[in-house]
Design a protein around this nucleic acid. Structure first.
Lengths: 210, 210
DNA sequence: GAGGCTAATGACAGCCACTGACAATTGACA
DNA sequence: TGTCAATTGTCAGTGGCTGTCATTAGCCTC
C-alpha cells in the first residue's frame, strides 16, 4: 500500500472515530460536520470526500457486520430450514463480526453508537431502511436455497420479514436495557429467536411465556 | 367554526394538496418548500407554521389511515387470535379509510404519492420509522387483549412484527406493480396474509405456493 | 362601530448539511 | 528533479429549517 493510500486510510479512520466518539458523547444532532472535520483538522469539504454524508459515518460499522451475516447465510448447509439457516447465520458470525469491528473502532464505542442510533429519530429511520435492504438480500439468498423465484413466491420475503422483526425487537430492548454488552445482546437474540415458534402457536392464554 | 379557523384550515389544505401534487408530478427531492409555498402564495415561513417539515406533508394522509386501523383493532372481539384480529382490523377499516382520505385529497393523488414514498429513499426511511411506531402501538393493544405485559412477554411484539412485515412486503409489491388501484392493494393484502401460515410451515419444497 | 387585544403572517437574518468549481498542494514515477 | 495526477482547501451557493420582530387581520368588548 502506497504512502498515499495509507494516508487516506488514516484520515478516513480518524474521521470515523472522531465522528463516532462525538455522537456517543454529545449526541448525533448536536454534532456538526464542522466539529468532526475540526477534530481531525481537515476541511469540511474533505469530510464529504470520504463520506457521502454525516449519516454514513454512523452506519459504517453496521454495514461491515451486515456483510458478514450475508456471507454466513450463503454458506449455510442446504439441509436447514430457512428460519434455522437465518438463525445460525446470525449467531455464528457473531465472533467474526466482533473481530472485524474491533480492527476499526473499539467495540465499546460501537455499542454506544448503537444506542445513539436507536434513540435518534433520523438515524433510526435510516437504520430501518438499511435493514429493509438487507432483508431483501437475505430473501434472495433464501429463495435461491429453496429453488424459488423471489418475485413469484412471497414466502421467502415473509420469513425474512419475521426474522428481521424479531431481530429489531431484540435490538430495541437491548439498547433500552442495562446490559449494554455484546454478550448481553447475543443472549437476548437467542432467547427471542427461540420464542418465535410459541408466539405463532395461537392461544397464548393457555401457557405463559417464561 | 370561526372565519379565522376556516381560513387556517383552507390554507393548510391548500398547502397539503399543492405539496402532494408537486411530489406526484415532479418528485419529492425536486420539489422545494419554496415551490410549495409559492403555489399557495404564502411565505415559506408560513408553510413551516403548518407543517413541521417537508416530510410531514407526505405523511399527513397515511397518519390518518393509521389512526383508523388502531381504532379498528381496539374494537375487535376478544375471541379472535392476535393475527386474526390484526388481519380483520386492517381489512375492515379499508372503506372508512377510503372515505376519510377522500375528504382531504383525491384518492388517486394519494395513491400516486404512495408510490413516491416507496421510491424515495428519504421518504421510505421515514415511512419505516413511522411503521415501527405504529407496530409499537398495535403490540400494546394486542398485549392488553391477551392480558399480557408487553415488556415482560415478547410475543405481542413478535406477532405484530410478522404482521407488519407482511404488510410492508405487500406495499412494496403493490407500488412496484401495474395495478395501482385501491382494490388492487386490498386484494394483494388478503392474498399475502393468507400465505403467512404456509410460509412458516417449514419444508417448502414439498408443496409449491400457488 | 371604534378601539384594543391577540393570533397569523411576512420579511429578514442565520445555522447546518451538502455540492460544484477552481486553485494550491503533495505524493508518484520516470 | 521535474512532470503528472491525485488530494486538499477555499469560496460561493442551494435547500431545509428556526428565531425574531414588525405588520396585518380577525375577534371581542364597550
Amino acid at each position: 500500500m502506497n504512502l498515499r493510500e495509507r494516508k487516506k486510510r488514516r484520515t478516513r479512520d480518524a474521521l470515523l472515530r472522531a465522528a463516532l466518539e462525538l455522537f456517543a458523547t454529545r449526541g448525533y444532532e448536536e454534532t456538526t460536520v464542522d466539529d468532526i472535520a475540526a477534530a481531525v483538522d481537515v476541511s469540511q469539504r474533505t469530510f464529504f470526500r470520504y463520506f457521502a454524508g454525516k449519516e454514513e459515518t454512523a452506519f459504517f460499522v453496521p454495514r461491515l457486520a451486515e456483510s458478514l451475516v450475508v456471507e454466513a447465510l450463503r454458506t449455510r448447509p442446504p439441509g436447514e430450514t430457512p428460519l434455522e439457516a437465518l438463525r445460525r447465520a446470525v449467531l455464528e458470525s457473531w465472533d467474526a463480526i466482533n473481530e472485524a469491528v474491533e480492527e476499526l473502532v473499539p467495540i465499546d464505542l460501537h455499542m454506544r453508537v448503537y444506542r445513539v442510533i436507536e434513540s435518534t429519530p433520523a438515524l433510526l429511520a435510516a437504520h430501518l431502511r438499511r435493514s429493509a435492504e438487507l432483508e431483501e438480500q437475505l430473501a434472495g439468498i433464501i429463495a435461491e436455497r429453496e429453488g424459488l423465484d423471489v418475485d413469484a413466491d412471497p414466502r421467502p420475503r415473509i420469513v425474512v420479514a419475521l426474522f428481521g422483526g424479531v431481530i429489531r425487537v431484540t435490538e430495541r430492548l437491548w439498547s433500552a436495557g442495562d446490559d449494554v454488552t455484546l454478550d448481553g445482546m447475543r443472549e437476548l437474540t437467542t432467547t427471542y429467536l427461540d420464542q418465535v415458534g410459541p408466539a405463532l402457536a395461537g392461544n397464548w392464554r393457555a401457557k405463559q411465556s417464561p
